[in-house]
Design a protein around this nucleic acid. Structure first.
Length: 574
RNA sequence: UGGGGCGUCGGCAAGUGGUAAGCCACCAGGUUUUGGUCCUGGCAUGCGCAGGUUCGAAUCCUGCCGCCCCAGCCA
Protein backbone atom coordinates (compact mmCIF):
# COMPACT_ATOMS: atom_id res chain seq x y z
CA UNK A 1 0.00 0.00 0.00
CA UNK A 2 1.24 3.42 -0.79
CA UNK A 3 1.79 6.07 1.78
CA UNK A 4 -0.25 8.65 -0.04
CA UNK A 5 -2.95 9.71 2.30
CA UNK A 6 -5.15 12.34 0.85
CA UNK A 7 -6.93 12.92 -2.37
CA UNK A 8 -5.88 9.65 -3.87
CA UNK A 9 -8.49 6.99 -4.31
CA UNK A 10 -7.27 3.52 -3.59
CA UNK A 11 -8.24 0.47 -1.63
CA UNK A 12 -6.62 1.81 1.46
CA UNK A 13 -8.50 5.05 1.65
CA UNK A 14 -11.81 3.76 0.39
CA UNK A 15 -11.78 0.82 2.71
CA UNK A 16 -14.40 -0.98 0.75
CA UNK A 17 -14.51 -2.03 -2.89
CA UNK A 18 -11.14 -3.77 -2.99
CA UNK A 19 -12.02 -5.73 0.11
CA UNK A 20 -15.53 -6.42 -1.07
CA UNK A 21 -16.67 -4.74 2.10
CA UNK A 22 -19.76 -2.59 2.45
CA UNK A 23 -19.87 1.10 3.06
CA UNK A 24 -20.29 2.34 6.57
CA UNK A 25 -23.46 4.23 7.45
CA UNK A 26 -21.71 7.61 7.31
CA UNK A 27 -20.54 7.15 3.73
CA UNK A 28 -24.01 5.91 2.89
CA UNK A 29 -25.46 9.16 4.26
CA UNK A 30 -22.94 11.15 2.27
CA UNK A 31 -23.87 9.29 -0.90
CA UNK A 32 -27.48 10.21 -0.28
CA UNK A 33 -26.65 13.84 0.43
CA UNK A 34 -24.71 14.06 -2.80
CA UNK A 35 -27.47 12.31 -4.74
CA UNK A 36 -30.20 14.57 -3.40
CA UNK A 37 -28.11 17.68 -3.86
CA UNK A 38 -28.14 18.59 -0.18
CA UNK A 39 -24.42 19.10 -0.63
CA UNK A 40 -22.41 19.23 -3.83
CA UNK A 41 -19.08 18.24 -2.34
CA UNK A 42 -17.57 16.81 0.82
CA UNK A 43 -15.63 18.71 3.44
CA UNK A 44 -14.85 17.18 6.82
CA UNK A 45 -12.70 18.16 9.74
CA UNK A 46 -10.82 16.61 12.64
CA UNK A 47 -11.35 18.84 15.70
CA UNK A 48 -9.12 17.89 18.66
CA UNK A 49 -8.86 19.92 21.82
CA UNK A 50 -5.15 20.54 22.51
CA UNK A 51 -5.34 19.33 26.10
CA UNK A 52 -3.62 15.98 25.79
CA UNK A 53 -1.97 13.57 23.40
CA UNK A 54 -3.90 11.79 20.69
CA UNK A 55 -4.77 8.15 21.27
CA UNK A 56 -5.87 5.32 19.05
CA UNK A 57 -9.50 6.41 19.40
CA UNK A 58 -8.52 9.68 17.77
CA UNK A 59 -6.72 7.68 15.10
CA UNK A 60 -10.06 6.09 14.27
CA UNK A 61 -11.60 9.52 13.85
CA UNK A 62 -8.65 10.86 11.87
CA UNK A 63 -8.76 7.93 9.47
CA UNK A 64 -12.51 8.37 9.13
CA UNK A 65 -12.46 12.10 8.45
CA UNK A 66 -9.39 12.19 6.23
CA UNK A 67 -10.40 8.91 4.64
CA UNK A 68 -13.80 10.24 3.67
CA UNK A 69 -12.28 13.41 2.29
CA UNK A 70 -10.01 11.24 0.19
CA UNK A 71 -12.81 8.99 -1.00
CA UNK A 72 -14.94 11.86 -2.18
CA UNK A 73 -12.11 14.06 -3.44
CA UNK A 74 -12.97 16.56 -0.77
CA UNK A 75 -10.98 18.21 1.96
CA UNK A 76 -10.43 17.64 5.63
CA UNK A 77 -9.50 20.49 7.95
CA UNK A 78 -7.50 20.23 11.10
CA UNK A 79 -9.16 22.44 13.66
CA UNK A 80 -8.09 22.85 17.24
CA UNK A 81 -11.04 23.36 19.54
CA UNK A 82 -9.22 25.68 21.88
CA UNK A 83 -12.02 27.31 23.83
CA UNK A 84 -10.77 26.44 27.31
CA UNK A 85 -7.43 28.18 27.99
CA UNK A 86 -7.16 26.59 31.41
CA UNK A 87 -6.40 23.19 29.93
CA UNK A 88 -4.79 23.84 26.60
CA UNK A 89 -1.12 24.10 25.73
CA UNK A 90 1.10 24.55 22.71
CA UNK A 91 2.92 21.32 23.59
CA UNK A 92 -0.29 19.50 22.81
CA UNK A 93 -0.94 21.20 19.48
CA UNK A 94 2.57 20.32 18.36
CA UNK A 95 2.25 16.69 19.39
CA UNK A 96 -1.14 16.43 17.71
CA UNK A 97 0.24 17.71 14.44
CA UNK A 98 3.20 15.33 14.65
CA UNK A 99 0.96 12.38 15.28
CA UNK A 100 -1.42 13.13 12.41
CA UNK A 101 1.46 13.60 10.01
CA UNK A 102 3.09 10.40 11.17
CA UNK A 103 -0.19 8.55 10.65
CA UNK A 104 0.10 9.65 7.05
CA UNK A 105 -2.38 12.49 6.66
CA UNK A 106 -1.92 15.98 5.34
CA UNK A 107 -4.22 18.90 6.01
CA UNK A 108 -2.33 21.24 3.71
CA UNK A 109 -3.11 24.85 4.53
CA UNK A 110 -6.29 23.93 6.31
CA UNK A 111 -5.10 24.38 9.86
CA UNK A 112 -7.57 26.31 11.95
CA UNK A 113 -8.35 27.16 15.53
CA UNK A 114 -11.66 27.88 17.19
CA UNK A 115 -9.80 30.85 18.64
CA UNK A 116 -9.53 32.23 15.10
CA UNK A 117 -13.25 32.84 15.39
CA UNK A 118 -13.44 34.55 18.76
CA UNK A 119 -14.30 37.95 17.19
CA UNK A 120 -16.96 36.50 14.93
CA UNK A 121 -18.42 34.48 17.79
CA UNK A 122 -18.56 37.60 19.94
CA UNK A 123 -20.44 39.49 17.22
CA UNK A 124 -22.83 36.62 16.73
CA UNK A 125 -23.50 36.50 20.44
CA UNK A 126 -24.50 40.16 20.36
CA UNK A 127 -26.70 39.39 17.40
CA UNK A 128 -28.57 36.78 19.42
CA UNK A 129 -28.86 39.20 22.33
CA UNK A 130 -30.29 41.70 19.88
CA UNK A 131 -32.91 39.18 18.85
CA UNK A 132 -33.80 38.58 22.46
CA UNK A 133 -32.32 35.08 22.24
CA UNK A 134 -29.48 35.42 24.74
CA UNK A 135 -29.05 37.09 28.10
CA UNK A 136 -26.52 37.80 30.78
CA UNK A 137 -27.20 35.73 33.86
CA UNK A 138 -25.83 36.69 37.26
CA UNK A 139 -26.72 33.55 39.12
CA UNK A 140 -23.87 31.64 40.75
CA UNK A 141 -22.88 28.26 39.32
CA UNK A 142 -24.70 26.54 42.15
CA UNK A 143 -27.84 28.57 41.57
CA UNK A 144 -27.74 27.85 37.87
CA UNK A 145 -27.52 24.17 38.62
CA UNK A 146 -30.42 24.40 41.03
CA UNK A 147 -32.51 26.19 38.42
CA UNK A 148 -31.72 23.67 35.71
CA UNK A 149 -34.07 21.04 37.05
CA UNK A 150 -33.48 17.33 36.51
CA UNK A 151 -34.12 14.94 33.65
CA UNK A 152 -37.63 14.42 34.96
CA UNK A 153 -38.41 17.90 36.30
CA UNK A 154 -38.49 21.12 34.34
CA UNK A 155 -36.04 23.85 35.26
CA UNK A 156 -36.95 27.35 36.44
CA UNK A 157 -36.20 30.61 34.76
CA UNK A 158 -33.40 32.69 36.15
CA UNK A 159 -34.55 35.96 37.72
CA UNK A 160 -32.16 37.69 35.31
CA UNK A 161 -33.71 36.09 32.25
CA UNK A 162 -35.73 39.12 31.28
CA UNK A 163 -33.11 41.83 31.25
CA UNK A 164 -33.60 44.21 28.38
CA UNK A 165 -31.63 43.90 25.19
CA UNK A 166 -29.83 47.15 26.03
CA UNK A 167 -28.86 45.97 29.48
CA UNK A 168 -27.69 42.62 28.11
CA UNK A 169 -25.60 44.27 25.44
CA UNK A 170 -23.95 46.65 27.81
CA UNK A 171 -23.29 43.98 30.41
CA UNK A 172 -21.91 41.60 27.80
CA UNK A 173 -19.60 44.37 26.55
CA UNK A 174 -18.59 45.00 30.13
CA UNK A 175 -17.87 41.31 30.59
CA UNK A 176 -15.53 41.45 27.67
CA UNK A 177 -13.97 44.68 28.91
CA UNK A 178 -12.98 42.99 32.11
CA UNK A 179 -15.25 44.95 34.38
CA UNK A 180 -16.42 41.92 36.32
CA UNK A 181 -14.54 39.31 38.29
CA UNK A 182 -14.22 35.74 37.01
CA UNK A 183 -17.45 33.85 37.29
CA UNK A 184 -19.61 36.87 38.11
CA UNK A 185 -21.81 36.50 35.07
CA UNK A 186 -22.33 34.26 32.06
CA UNK A 187 -24.06 34.74 28.77
CA UNK A 188 -26.81 32.21 28.18
CA UNK A 189 -28.96 31.31 25.24
CA UNK A 190 -32.63 31.97 25.95
CA UNK A 191 -34.35 28.81 24.80
CA UNK A 192 -36.60 26.86 27.17
CA UNK A 193 -35.97 25.95 30.79
CA UNK A 194 -38.59 23.20 30.56
CA UNK A 195 -37.13 21.55 27.48
CA UNK A 196 -36.92 17.75 27.79
CA UNK A 197 -33.41 17.92 26.36
CA UNK A 198 -31.37 19.46 29.15
CA UNK A 199 -28.91 20.94 26.68
CA UNK A 200 -31.67 23.25 25.54
CA UNK A 201 -32.34 24.68 29.02
CA UNK A 202 -30.62 27.99 28.42
CA UNK A 203 -27.08 26.68 27.87
CA UNK A 204 -24.05 28.82 28.71
CA UNK A 205 -22.37 30.55 25.80
CA UNK A 206 -19.69 32.61 27.55
CA UNK A 207 -17.92 32.56 30.87
CA UNK A 208 -15.56 35.09 32.40
CA UNK A 209 -12.16 33.49 32.89
CA UNK A 210 -8.91 35.36 33.20
CA UNK A 211 -6.57 32.74 31.84
CA UNK A 212 -3.70 32.97 29.41
CA UNK A 213 -4.69 31.47 26.08
CA UNK A 214 -2.02 29.64 24.10
CA UNK A 215 -2.81 31.70 21.02
CA UNK A 216 -4.80 34.77 21.94
CA UNK A 217 -2.73 35.45 25.04
CA UNK A 218 -4.50 37.86 27.35
CA UNK A 219 -6.64 39.67 24.85
CA UNK A 220 -9.78 37.96 26.10
CA UNK A 221 -11.13 37.45 29.57
CA UNK A 222 -14.33 35.82 28.38
CA UNK A 223 -14.29 32.56 26.47
CA UNK A 224 -16.98 30.84 24.44
CA UNK A 225 -18.09 27.40 25.53
CA UNK A 226 -17.58 24.45 23.23
CA UNK A 227 -21.30 24.27 22.58
CA UNK A 228 -21.41 27.84 21.41
CA UNK A 229 -18.23 27.59 19.34
CA UNK A 230 -18.34 24.22 17.68
CA UNK A 231 -21.27 24.42 15.31
CA UNK A 232 -20.37 27.91 14.18
CA UNK A 233 -16.76 26.90 13.58
CA UNK A 234 -17.99 24.13 11.29
CA UNK A 235 -20.29 26.59 9.58
CA UNK A 236 -17.55 29.16 9.03
CA UNK A 237 -15.29 26.52 7.49
CA UNK A 238 -18.01 25.28 5.19
CA UNK A 239 -17.90 21.79 6.65
CA UNK A 240 -20.50 19.58 4.94
CA UNK A 241 -20.34 16.59 7.25
CA UNK A 242 -19.45 17.20 10.86
CA UNK A 243 -18.57 13.78 12.17
CA UNK A 244 -18.36 13.33 15.92
CA UNK A 245 -18.93 10.81 18.67
CA UNK A 246 -22.21 9.66 20.13
CA UNK A 247 -22.23 11.83 23.25
CA UNK A 248 -22.79 14.87 21.06
CA UNK A 249 -26.00 13.54 19.61
CA UNK A 250 -27.88 15.24 22.43
CA UNK A 251 -26.23 18.53 21.50
CA UNK A 252 -27.17 18.46 17.83
CA UNK A 253 -30.52 20.22 18.40
CA UNK A 254 -28.64 23.03 20.15
CA UNK A 255 -26.10 23.42 17.35
CA UNK A 256 -28.90 23.47 14.82
CA UNK A 257 -30.78 26.02 16.91
CA UNK A 258 -27.80 28.39 16.99
CA UNK A 259 -27.21 28.08 13.26
CA UNK A 260 -30.86 28.56 12.49
CA UNK A 261 -31.19 31.69 14.66
CA UNK A 262 -27.98 33.08 13.21
CA UNK A 263 -29.28 32.31 9.73
CA UNK A 264 -25.98 30.88 8.57
CA UNK A 265 -24.84 27.83 6.62
CA UNK A 266 -25.64 24.46 8.23
CA UNK A 267 -23.40 21.40 8.10
CA UNK A 268 -24.84 17.95 8.78
CA UNK A 269 -23.67 16.37 11.99
CA UNK A 270 -23.33 12.59 12.08
CA UNK A 271 -22.41 10.71 15.24
CA UNK A 272 -20.57 7.40 15.58
CA UNK A 273 -19.48 5.23 18.51
CA UNK A 274 -16.09 5.95 19.98
CA UNK A 275 -13.44 3.26 20.11
CA UNK A 276 -12.95 1.08 23.16
CA UNK A 277 -10.02 -1.33 23.18
CA UNK A 278 -9.73 -4.22 25.58
CA UNK A 279 -7.09 -4.13 28.32
CA UNK A 280 -6.55 -0.41 28.06
CA UNK A 281 -8.18 2.92 28.78
CA UNK A 282 -9.10 5.66 26.40
CA UNK A 283 -10.13 8.46 28.69
CA UNK A 284 -7.85 11.47 28.41
CA UNK A 285 -8.19 12.08 32.12
CA UNK A 286 -6.98 8.60 33.01
CA UNK A 287 -4.16 8.74 30.50
CA UNK A 288 -3.07 12.04 32.00
CA UNK A 289 -3.11 10.45 35.45
CA UNK A 290 -1.06 7.49 34.27
CA UNK A 291 1.57 9.94 33.08
CA UNK A 292 1.42 12.41 35.97
CA UNK A 293 1.44 9.73 38.65
CA UNK A 294 4.34 7.94 37.03
CA UNK A 295 2.66 4.64 36.27
CA UNK A 296 4.21 4.90 32.83
CA UNK A 297 7.29 6.72 31.62
CA UNK A 298 5.39 9.35 29.65
CA UNK A 299 2.80 9.92 26.95
CA UNK A 300 4.90 7.85 24.58
CA UNK A 301 5.49 4.95 26.92
CA UNK A 302 5.21 1.87 24.66
CA UNK A 303 2.33 0.56 26.74
CA UNK A 304 0.19 3.64 26.24
CA UNK A 305 -2.67 3.59 23.71
CA UNK A 306 -1.51 6.99 22.51
CA UNK A 307 -0.42 7.34 18.93
CA UNK A 308 3.10 8.25 20.01
CA UNK A 309 3.09 5.33 22.46
CA UNK A 310 2.07 2.89 19.75
CA UNK A 311 4.69 4.41 17.51
CA UNK A 312 7.39 3.88 20.10
CA UNK A 313 6.07 0.37 20.67
CA UNK A 314 6.81 -0.42 17.05
CA UNK A 315 3.44 0.04 15.40
CA UNK A 316 3.40 1.36 11.86
CA UNK A 317 1.04 3.93 10.34
CA UNK A 318 -0.01 1.26 7.86
CA UNK A 319 -1.03 -1.11 10.63
CA UNK A 320 -2.96 1.57 12.46
CA UNK A 321 -4.79 2.59 9.29
CA UNK A 322 -5.60 -1.03 8.53
CA UNK A 323 -6.93 -1.34 12.06
CA UNK A 324 -9.15 1.71 11.67
CA UNK A 325 -10.46 0.34 8.41
CA UNK A 326 -10.99 -3.10 9.85
CA UNK A 327 -13.01 -2.18 12.92
CA UNK A 328 -15.62 -0.35 10.91
CA UNK A 329 -17.83 2.53 11.95
CA UNK A 330 -21.20 2.15 13.61
CA UNK A 331 -23.36 3.55 16.36
CA UNK A 332 -23.39 0.70 18.82
CA UNK A 333 -21.07 0.77 21.80
CA UNK A 334 -18.38 -1.79 21.32
CA UNK A 335 -15.15 -3.10 22.70
CA UNK A 336 -12.53 -4.10 20.17
CA UNK A 337 -10.39 -7.06 21.12
CA UNK A 338 -6.77 -5.92 21.35
CA UNK A 339 -5.93 -9.17 19.52
CA UNK A 340 -7.29 -7.55 16.38
CA UNK A 341 -4.89 -4.62 16.76
CA UNK A 342 -2.04 -7.08 17.16
CA UNK A 343 -3.20 -9.00 14.12
CA UNK A 344 -3.09 -5.81 12.03
CA UNK A 345 0.49 -5.18 13.09
CA UNK A 346 1.66 -8.73 12.38
CA UNK A 347 -0.03 -8.70 9.03
CA UNK A 348 1.79 -5.53 8.00
CA UNK A 349 5.14 -6.51 9.47
CA UNK A 350 5.16 -10.05 8.11
CA UNK A 351 5.86 -8.63 4.70
CA UNK A 352 7.47 -5.35 5.74
CA UNK A 353 9.93 -6.29 8.47
CA UNK A 354 13.35 -7.76 7.83
CA UNK A 355 14.33 -10.80 9.82
CA UNK A 356 17.19 -10.89 12.29
CA UNK A 357 18.37 -13.28 14.98
CA UNK A 358 18.58 -12.30 18.62
CA UNK A 359 18.75 -14.57 21.64
CA UNK A 360 16.71 -13.26 24.53
CA UNK A 361 17.88 -15.67 27.23
CA UNK A 362 21.22 -17.09 26.13
CA UNK A 363 22.40 -20.64 26.69
CA UNK A 364 25.95 -21.33 25.58
CA UNK A 365 26.60 -24.05 23.04
CA UNK A 366 30.08 -25.34 22.22
CA UNK A 367 30.54 -27.32 19.02
CA UNK A 368 33.22 -29.78 20.08
CA UNK A 369 34.05 -30.91 16.56
CA UNK A 370 34.20 -27.43 15.05
CA UNK A 371 37.77 -26.04 14.60
CA UNK A 372 38.78 -23.61 17.35
CA UNK A 373 39.79 -20.64 15.24
CA UNK A 374 37.39 -21.20 12.37
CA UNK A 375 34.73 -18.72 11.46
CA UNK A 376 32.43 -18.66 8.49
CA UNK A 377 29.74 -16.35 7.25
CA UNK A 378 26.37 -17.55 6.09
CA UNK A 379 24.15 -15.70 3.77
CA UNK A 380 20.64 -15.27 5.13
CA UNK A 381 17.58 -13.92 3.42
CA UNK A 382 16.28 -10.76 5.05
CA UNK A 383 12.67 -11.67 4.45
CA UNK A 384 11.31 -14.91 3.03
CA UNK A 385 8.10 -13.05 2.19
CA UNK A 386 9.92 -10.47 0.11
CA UNK A 387 12.78 -11.43 -2.18
CA UNK A 388 13.51 -7.75 -2.80
CA UNK A 389 14.59 -7.42 0.82
CA UNK A 390 17.87 -9.10 -0.13
CA UNK A 391 20.38 -10.90 2.05
CA UNK A 392 22.86 -10.31 4.83
CA UNK A 393 25.87 -12.13 6.24
CA UNK A 394 25.81 -13.85 9.60
CA UNK A 395 28.98 -15.07 11.35
CA UNK A 396 29.23 -18.60 12.69
CA UNK A 397 31.86 -20.06 15.00
CA UNK A 398 32.59 -22.76 17.55
CA UNK A 399 30.80 -21.10 20.43
CA UNK A 400 27.24 -19.99 20.07
CA UNK A 401 24.21 -18.95 22.03
CA UNK A 402 20.79 -20.43 21.62
CA UNK A 403 17.59 -19.69 23.50
CA UNK A 404 17.23 -21.31 26.90
CA UNK A 405 13.70 -22.29 25.88
CA UNK A 406 15.12 -24.21 22.96
CA UNK A 407 16.67 -26.83 25.19
CA UNK A 408 15.08 -29.23 27.63
CA UNK A 409 16.93 -31.95 29.42
CA UNK A 410 13.81 -34.01 29.92
CA UNK A 411 11.40 -32.96 27.20
CA UNK A 412 7.73 -33.82 26.91
CA UNK A 413 6.42 -35.84 23.98
CA UNK A 414 5.75 -33.13 21.44
CA UNK A 415 8.83 -31.05 22.15
CA UNK A 416 10.96 -30.97 19.05
CA UNK A 417 13.70 -28.63 20.01
CA UNK A 418 17.09 -29.62 21.43
CA UNK A 419 17.55 -32.21 24.17
CA UNK A 420 20.24 -34.77 25.00
CA UNK A 421 20.97 -36.96 21.98
CA UNK A 422 18.59 -35.02 19.74
CA UNK A 423 19.45 -33.21 16.55
CA UNK A 424 18.09 -29.85 15.42
CA UNK A 425 18.90 -27.35 12.73
CA UNK A 426 20.48 -24.00 13.42
CA UNK A 427 18.71 -21.65 11.03
CA UNK A 428 20.78 -20.93 7.91
CA UNK A 429 23.70 -22.96 9.34
CA UNK A 430 24.19 -26.60 10.36
CA UNK A 431 22.50 -29.50 12.08
CA UNK A 432 23.76 -30.01 15.58
CA UNK A 433 23.33 -32.83 18.07
CA UNK A 434 23.45 -32.41 21.82
CA UNK A 435 26.07 -34.70 23.35
CA UNK A 436 26.58 -33.39 26.84
CA UNK A 437 24.89 -31.11 29.35
CA UNK A 438 27.05 -29.03 31.66
CA UNK A 439 25.54 -27.84 34.94
CA UNK A 440 26.64 -25.55 37.70
CA UNK A 441 26.77 -26.46 41.36
CA UNK A 442 23.10 -25.63 41.75
CA UNK A 443 22.16 -27.97 38.97
CA UNK A 444 21.33 -25.32 36.40
CA UNK A 445 22.16 -26.06 32.81
CA UNK A 446 24.89 -23.60 31.88
CA UNK A 447 26.35 -25.01 28.71
CA UNK A 448 25.73 -27.59 26.04
CA UNK A 449 28.38 -29.64 24.28
CA UNK A 450 27.22 -30.42 20.81
CA UNK A 451 28.63 -31.74 17.56
CA UNK A 452 27.75 -30.41 14.17
CA UNK A 453 27.41 -32.23 10.87
CA UNK A 454 29.65 -30.56 8.26
CA UNK A 455 27.49 -32.15 5.57
CA UNK A 456 24.48 -30.15 6.70
CA UNK A 457 25.96 -26.79 5.78
CA UNK A 458 23.18 -24.41 4.81
CA UNK A 459 20.59 -26.39 6.68
CA UNK A 460 20.10 -29.59 4.74
CA UNK A 461 21.90 -32.88 4.31
CA UNK A 462 22.72 -35.10 1.30
CA UNK A 463 20.89 -38.00 2.90
CA UNK A 464 17.81 -35.83 3.16
CA UNK A 465 17.14 -36.68 6.78
CA UNK A 466 14.68 -34.45 8.56
CA UNK A 467 14.98 -32.58 11.81
CA UNK A 468 11.87 -31.35 13.51
CA UNK A 469 13.25 -28.27 15.14
CA UNK A 470 15.00 -25.19 13.85
CA UNK A 471 16.49 -22.74 16.29
CA UNK A 472 17.85 -19.26 15.97
CA UNK A 473 21.33 -18.65 17.33
CA UNK A 474 24.09 -16.07 17.57
CA UNK A 475 27.85 -16.57 17.39
CA UNK A 476 29.24 -15.84 20.86
CA UNK A 477 32.34 -14.11 19.60
CA UNK A 478 30.38 -11.79 17.36
CA UNK A 479 27.31 -11.22 19.51
CA UNK A 480 26.26 -7.72 20.36
CA UNK A 481 24.90 -7.33 23.86
CA UNK A 482 21.48 -5.73 23.77
CA UNK A 483 18.69 -4.61 26.00
CA UNK A 484 15.25 -5.88 25.12
CA UNK A 485 12.02 -4.60 26.63
CA UNK A 486 9.16 -7.04 26.63
CA UNK A 487 5.84 -5.26 26.89
CA UNK A 488 2.49 -6.67 27.77
CA UNK A 489 -0.98 -5.19 28.23
CA UNK A 490 -1.14 -2.25 30.60
CA UNK A 491 -4.15 -3.54 32.50
CA UNK A 492 -4.95 -6.93 33.87
CA UNK A 493 -8.65 -6.79 33.08
CA UNK A 494 -10.49 -6.47 29.81
CA UNK A 495 -12.37 -3.31 30.72
CA UNK A 496 -10.43 -1.23 33.25
CA UNK A 497 -12.95 1.59 32.81
CA UNK A 498 -15.50 -0.62 34.49
CA UNK A 499 -14.38 -0.53 38.10
CA UNK A 500 -16.39 -2.11 40.88
CA UNK A 501 -17.71 -0.17 43.88
CA UNK A 502 -14.90 1.16 45.98
CA UNK A 503 -12.29 -0.18 43.62
CA UNK A 504 -9.45 2.01 42.40
CA UNK A 505 -8.71 1.70 38.70
CA UNK A 506 -5.02 1.90 39.58
CA UNK A 507 -5.25 -1.52 41.20
CA UNK A 508 -6.08 -2.93 37.79
CA UNK A 509 -2.75 -1.93 36.30
CA UNK A 510 -0.76 -4.95 35.16
CA UNK A 511 2.35 -4.97 37.32
CA UNK A 512 4.20 -7.14 34.82
CA UNK A 513 3.53 -5.06 31.74
CA UNK A 514 7.20 -4.27 31.20
CA UNK A 515 10.03 -6.77 31.55
CA UNK A 516 13.50 -5.51 30.78
CA UNK A 517 16.07 -8.04 29.61
CA UNK A 518 19.76 -7.20 29.44
CA UNK A 519 22.58 -9.23 28.05
CA UNK A 520 20.52 -10.43 25.13
CA UNK A 521 22.71 -11.59 22.26
CA UNK A 522 22.12 -9.98 18.90
CA UNK A 523 23.63 -10.78 15.53
CA UNK A 524 26.12 -8.03 14.61
CA UNK A 525 23.99 -6.42 11.90
CA UNK A 526 21.57 -5.29 14.58
CA UNK A 527 23.92 -2.75 16.15
CA UNK A 528 23.69 -0.79 12.94
CA UNK A 529 19.90 -0.52 13.10
CA UNK A 530 18.50 2.97 12.84
CA UNK A 531 16.12 3.96 15.62
CA UNK A 532 12.50 3.10 14.79
CA UNK A 533 13.45 0.28 12.43
CA UNK A 534 11.21 -2.71 13.02
CA UNK A 535 12.51 -6.27 12.69
CA UNK A 536 11.14 -9.70 13.11
CA UNK A 537 13.43 -11.49 15.54
CA UNK A 538 13.15 -14.98 14.20
CA UNK A 539 10.68 -17.21 16.01
CA UNK A 540 9.96 -14.51 18.58
CA UNK A 541 8.16 -11.48 17.37
CA UNK A 542 8.43 -8.00 16.01
CA UNK A 543 10.80 -5.62 17.73
CA UNK A 544 11.65 -2.01 17.10
CA UNK A 545 14.91 -0.20 17.79
CA UNK A 546 13.79 2.23 20.47
CA UNK A 547 13.18 5.70 19.17
CA UNK A 548 14.82 7.36 22.16
CA UNK A 549 17.29 4.97 23.77
CA UNK A 550 18.74 2.83 21.01
CA UNK A 551 22.36 3.48 20.00
CA UNK A 552 24.99 1.32 18.27
CA UNK A 553 26.89 1.18 21.58
CA UNK A 554 23.83 0.26 23.59
CA UNK A 555 21.16 -1.34 21.41
CA UNK A 556 17.65 -1.25 22.83
CA UNK A 557 14.72 -3.07 21.28
CA UNK A 558 11.07 -2.97 22.22
CA UNK A 559 8.82 -5.90 21.55
CA UNK A 560 5.87 -4.59 19.57
CA UNK A 561 4.06 -7.91 19.39
CA UNK A 562 5.01 -11.55 19.60
CA UNK A 563 4.65 -14.02 16.77
CA UNK A 564 1.70 -16.38 16.98
CA UNK A 565 2.90 -19.11 19.26
CA UNK A 566 1.29 -22.46 18.58
CA UNK A 567 3.76 -24.26 20.81
CA UNK A 568 2.80 -22.10 23.78
CA UNK A 569 -0.82 -22.91 23.06
CA UNK A 570 -0.13 -26.63 22.89
CA UNK A 571 1.67 -26.50 26.23
CA UNK A 572 -1.08 -24.49 27.83
CA UNK A 573 -3.83 -26.79 26.62
CA UNK A 574 -1.82 -29.72 27.88
C1' U B 1 -41.34 8.77 36.26
C1' G B 2 -37.96 13.04 31.04
C1' G B 3 -35.14 13.27 26.45
C1' G B 4 -31.65 11.08 22.94
C1' G B 5 -29.32 6.56 21.10
C1' C B 6 -28.31 1.25 20.56
C1' G B 7 -29.40 -4.33 20.71
C1' U B 8 -27.18 -9.81 14.29
C1' C B 9 -21.71 -15.77 16.29
C1' G B 10 -16.78 -15.30 21.97
C1' G B 11 -15.08 -9.89 19.78
C1' C B 12 -16.13 -6.49 15.53
C1' A B 13 -19.54 -5.97 11.40
C1' A B 14 -22.59 -6.45 6.58
C1' G B 15 -27.69 -7.02 5.72
C1' U B 16 -32.92 -1.87 4.42
C1' G B 17 -39.25 -7.91 2.91
C1' G B 18 -36.96 -13.16 -0.65
C1' U B 19 -34.74 -17.23 2.82
C1' A B 20 -27.82 -14.81 7.81
C1' A B 21 -21.23 -11.48 3.88
C1' G B 22 -16.53 -10.75 5.72
C1' C B 23 -12.66 -10.08 9.53
C1' C B 24 -10.46 -11.33 14.45
C1' A B 25 -10.53 -15.26 17.97
C1' C B 26 -11.15 -20.44 18.33
C1' C B 27 -10.95 -25.79 16.40
C1' A B 28 -9.14 -29.60 12.75
C1' G B 29 -5.82 -30.78 8.71
C1' G B 30 -1.76 -29.69 4.80
C1' U B 31 2.91 -27.10 3.30
C1' U B 32 7.29 -25.13 5.62
C1' U B 33 15.24 -24.34 6.91
C1' U B 34 10.73 -19.36 11.72
C1' G B 35 6.00 -24.60 16.31
C1' G B 36 5.95 -17.76 11.90
C1' U B 37 3.84 -17.08 7.00
C1' C B 38 0.74 -19.58 3.48
C1' C B 39 -3.28 -23.15 2.07
C1' U B 40 -7.85 -26.16 3.14
C1' G B 41 -12.02 -27.11 6.12
C1' G B 42 -15.16 -26.11 10.56
C1' C B 43 -17.55 -22.22 13.41
C1' A B 44 -25.50 -18.07 14.11
C1' U B 45 -31.97 -23.48 11.34
C1' G B 46 -30.40 -18.07 13.97
C1' C B 47 -30.71 -11.96 14.22
C1' G B 48 -32.64 -9.04 22.76
C1' C B 49 -37.78 -11.32 24.09
C1' A B 50 -43.10 -12.04 22.93
C1' G B 51 -46.95 -11.44 19.74
C1' G B 52 -48.79 -9.69 14.91
C1' U B 53 -48.83 -8.49 9.30
C1' U B 54 -47.13 -11.36 4.88
C1' C B 55 -46.69 -16.76 0.33
C1' G B 56 -42.20 -15.16 2.78
C1' A B 57 -39.64 -11.01 8.36
C1' A B 58 -33.04 -9.74 11.11
C1' U B 59 -35.64 -6.35 7.90
C1' C B 60 -42.72 -3.88 8.64
C1' C B 61 -46.32 -3.24 13.19
C1' U B 62 -47.33 -3.67 18.65
C1' G B 63 -45.73 -4.55 23.52
C1' C B 64 -41.94 -5.75 26.71
C1' C B 65 -36.58 -6.41 28.32
C1' G B 66 -31.49 -4.80 28.41
C1' C B 67 -27.32 -1.43 27.66
C1' C B 68 -25.20 3.63 26.68
C1' C B 69 -25.48 9.22 26.84
C1' C B 70 -27.56 13.95 29.12
C1' A B 71 -28.64 17.80 35.17
C1' G B 72 -19.85 21.55 33.64
C1' C B 73 -19.32 28.66 33.78
C1' C B 74 -15.37 20.56 30.30
C1' A B 75 -14.91 19.06 25.38
Amino acid sequence: MSDTPQGEINAETTGNAAEGGAKDFIRTFIDEDLATGRYTHVHTRFPPEPNGYLHIGHAKSICLNFGIAGDYQGKCNLRFDDTNPAKEETEYVDSIKDDIRWLGFDWGESEFYASDYFDQLFDWAKQLIGKGLAYVDSLSPDEIRAHRGTPTEAGRNSPFRDRTVEENISMFEAMRAGEYPDGAHVLRAKIDMAHPNINMRDPTMYRIRRAHHHRTGDTWCIYPTYDWAHGQSDSIEGITHSICTLEFENHRPLYDWFLEKLEVYRPRQIEFARLNLSYTLMSKRRLLELVKEGHVSGWDDPRMPTICGLRRRGFTPQALRAFARGIGVAKRDSMIDVAFLEFCLREDLNTAAERRMLVLNPLKVVLTNYPEQQEEWFEADNNPEDAAAGHRKIPFSRELYIEQDDFMEDPPKKYFRLSPGKEIRLKHAYYITCDEVIKDAAGNVVELRCSYDPESRGGGTPDGRKVKGTSHWVSAAHAVDSEVRLYDRLFSVEDPADTAEGQDWRDLINKDSCEVLTGCKAEPALAQAAPETVFQFLRQGYFVADRRDHTPEHPVFNRAVGLRDTWAKVQKNG
